[in-house]
Design a binder for these strands. Structure first.
Lengths: 142, 142
DNA sequence: TCATGTTATTTGTATATACAAATAAAACCT
DNA sequence: AGGTTTTATTTGTATATACAAATAACATGA
């Protein structure tokens, strides 16, 4: 069933969720090569690029709640991809050397993914669409 | 943090998910009045408008998997809003009279929600955006 | 007709995410 | 300094969703 044929096709709730689910799936395919879920991969990339990042800052940047970030970090710790140091109420997250070795492959996965949807949508079109979605998101409250 | 300032702002995965989360929250507010999660509400409306709908068809229209539909129906059954009849391998889902009584309020919630984001985004803009999102979704595989 | 394949649904299990409450540390008044 | 408020993080619990396997019914071709 196409979104454009659904009885719900006029509703932003439905449309936004349907898009997110499809995109999630497409992204998961790209990241599968290195056995990471997209959200784990994004967090890890952030930590690689900003060593010692704090969970609260990560939450803001990823627009997820702090509790979700805690849970993601736990998973990445299990995989020995990050470590956490806690000093007072502040936690800092660092990528391990295992993660650092993975970094080039991660960039390749990211590339693969954006190429994949770039081909489907057209390069210009896809860049414009992402910008429009961001603009929309920024206007919504919260 | 604005989407447009995030290090991930160029990535469709990130953008689509951030949008969906915000919209979900906004929708949940509107549906809270009648104590329904948006996905439950959408399924229920479909069943109200199409009595006897089959889980498989509902899955297609809502672009969710059949197993997810089963789970949603279970919840709605607990709330006495739908009943399920099974004949052979075919199941049919019907709204109860309790659900039928709720229908006008549901339409009001839906209205409230679309008014809410219509005000935030502008009526034309929001309609155009939903169409663009649908078009994008339809182009993606799966 | 019956063996095999296909379809519809459900179940078992896993993941992502959130909210609210619990901790714990730091900052801030007076 | 000592009490109060704010901030950062984690934990307990709940929801939405999916995939893969199980089940059950149906269809179909030899």
């Amino acid at each position: 069933m196409k979104s454009s044929n659904s009885r719900f096709n006029k509703c932003l709730y439905f449309s936004a969720n349907a898009l997110a689910r499809k995109v999630e799936k497409l992204a998961a395919e790209s990241w599968k090569k290195i056995h990471l879920a997209p959200s784990h991969a994004y967090l890890l990339m952030m930590v690689l690029e900003e060593p010692g990042a704090q969970p609260g800052a990560i939450a803001k940047e990823m627009q997820l709640t702090p509790s979700t970030i805690t849970r993601l970090i736990e998973k990445l710790e299990e995989k020995k991809l990050v470590i956490r140091t806690t000093e007072g109420k502040i936690a800092n997250v660092f990528a391990t050397s295992k993660a650092k070795e993975l970094y080039p492959k991660m960039k390749a996965c990211l590339n693969d993914f954006s190429k994949k949807y770039g081909e489907i949508l057209g390069a210009d079109e896809s860049i414009r669409m992402v910008q429009n979605i961001n603009k929309l998101t920024d206007k919504l409250p919260g």
